[in-house]
Amino acid sequence: MRTWVYLPLLLSGMVPWLVRWTATRVSPATAVRTAAAAAAAAAGTWVCCLALLALTFCDDLPPLSAFDRRPDLGLPKPVPDVVALAAAAALAVGLARLVREVVRRRRVLRELRGAGRPNGGLVVADWTEPFAVAVPGRPGRSGHLLVTSGMLRLLDAQERRVLFAHEQSHLRRRHHHWVAVAVWSAALSPLLKPLSAQVAHATERWADEDAAIQVGDRHLVARAVAKASLAGGVRRLEPAMALHGSGAVARVRALQQPCRQSRLWAVAGVVGWCALLLGATAVALAEFGDVARAWLTQLG
Rank of each mutant, 00 (worst) to 15 (best):
R69G: 09
A187P: 03
A89K: 03
A23G: 07
L53P: 01
L192D: 02
A242N: 00
R260D: 04
R113L: 13
P62T: 10
L95S: 05
A43V: 09
L152D: 09
H144F: 15
L191P: 04
A51V: 00
N119W: 11
Y6K: 12
A36P: 12
V234I: 11
G114I: 06
L146S: 01
M1C: 10
R174W: 09
W273E: 01
V162R: 09
S142L: 14
R138A: 11
G137V: 01
L243C: 08
H219P: 00
C49D: 10
R205P: 04
G247R: 07
G269D: 02
W4I: 05
P8F: 02
A90H: 04
A242L: 01
T203V: 15
T30W: 14
W21C: 01
Q214G: 01
R104M: 00
V32I: 05
A51T: 02
G279R: 03
R107T: 13
L195A: 01
R251A: 12
A211I: 03
H170P: 11
A200V: 08
D68R: 15
A248I: 13
G120W: 11
R223N: 11
A231C: 05
R235T: 09
G279T: 09
A165D: 00
A35N: 04
V271S: 03
R218L: 10
L299P: 03
A54N: 03
C58Q: 02
R33N: 12
A54Q: 04
A180Y: 02
R117Q: 09
V249C: 07
K227F: 07
K193T: 15
Q261H: 10
S262N: 02
